[in-house]
């Protein structure tokens, strides 16, 4: 059916266009100057407007922009450490929940798993004020450590959720066998279970990084200047006289590392690893 085929590719191309539109717009805008912006929507350099690197320069100390290096570093450090800690704690907890039965009063494994996952229902605004006061009390307001703590609360549930499902799919006879071969549960976990769970951990890590990197609200309410994270720095450019060129350049810089994650996620998807991890 060639007609159906044509429609299929047409649909794919239309959606691709929609997906790429904002990013393409940002790319072309990042090379504009004030003149290029105020003369109305133009798309092609040299033809529509005179390209300039001013927008990009403004991110690295140039005029009229923000210094992006420091917030970038903050974002990398905070997201990276919170993800790492969440993966470690989440993987251990998920392994326990998958393999052992816990019973305290009426609380059973399923209830504990639900407690972890239910954290995602919590609207950020409910947590924001107490987090603010808690960090103030701990003297951690406007510090990376404070943000890492808060991000762990956001990311740990994701790690537990993905890893419990993953470990449920790893035959438990493997770890039992390791214990009969003389391993304590820790050794069985480290020597036998972990090497067979790397793809699951990778999936969990991807999701932690995406959700951590993309948070704005907590970074916005819990930091001021010292530990401003990337999204906050970029949004601070957003005002009535927004320098569109700096804004676009910074947006592209912030999105860039996640393109790599998109490629990794697609690989996991096509290898079928993701299907096991997400159900």
């Amino acid at each position: 059916m060639p007609l159906l085929s044509i429609l299929k590719y047409l649909a794919i191309l239309v959606w691709s266009g929609f997906v790429m539109a904002p990013l393409t717009w940002a790319l072309t805008t990042s090379f504009k100057t004030a003149n290029g912006v105020t003369s109305g929507p133009t798309y092609l350099p040299w033809i529509g407007y005179e390209p300039s690197l001013a927008g990009w320069r403004s991110l690295f100390g140039g005029a009229g922009g923000i210094d992006i290096v420091r917030p970038y570093l903050n974002s990398v450090i905070v997201t990276g450490s919170a993800s790492l800690i969440s993966i470690v704690l989440g993987t251990l907890a998920a392994y326990g929940l998958s393999r052992f039965s816990y019973r305290t009063g009426f609380v059973k494994n399923a209830d504990i798993v639900f407690f972890f996952i239910s954290q995602r229902i919590m609207p950020p605004i409910v947590l924001a004020i107490p987090f603010f006061l808690m960090l103030q009390f701990l003297d951690l307001l406007d510090t990376r450590l404070g943000l890492v703590l808060v991000y762990i609360a956001l990311l740990l549930p994701i790690a537990v959720w993905i890893m419990v499902d993953f470990f449920d799919g790893v035959p438990r006879q493997i770890d039992e066998m390791a214990m009969l071969d003389g391993c304590t549960p820790f050794e069985a976990f480290r020597r036998v279970v972990l090497p067979n769970s790397l793809s699951g951990i990778l999936v969990a890590a991807m999701f932690c990084l995406i959700f951590g990197w993309n948070d704005f609200f907590f970074a916005f309410t819990l930091t001021f200047t010292d530990t401003q994270l990337l999204p906050v720095a970029i949004v601070s450019l957003n005002s009535s006289v927004t320098p569109w060129w700096s804004l676009s350049a910074s947006a592209l810089i912030s999105v860039a590392p996640l393109i790599v994650i998109a490629i990794v996620v697609e690989r996991l998807l096509s290898r079928g690893t993701l299907a096991g991890a997400i159900r």
């Binding site: 904002p22 940002a26 995406i210 990337l230 970029i234 996640l258």
Partner: peptide
């Protein structure tokens, strides 16, 4: 994969 708040800023210009 893109940061919602950052993309919203771009959408505002769009």
């Amino acid at each position: 994969m893109t940061t919602p708040v950052v993309m919203s800023v771009i959408w505002r210009t769009i």
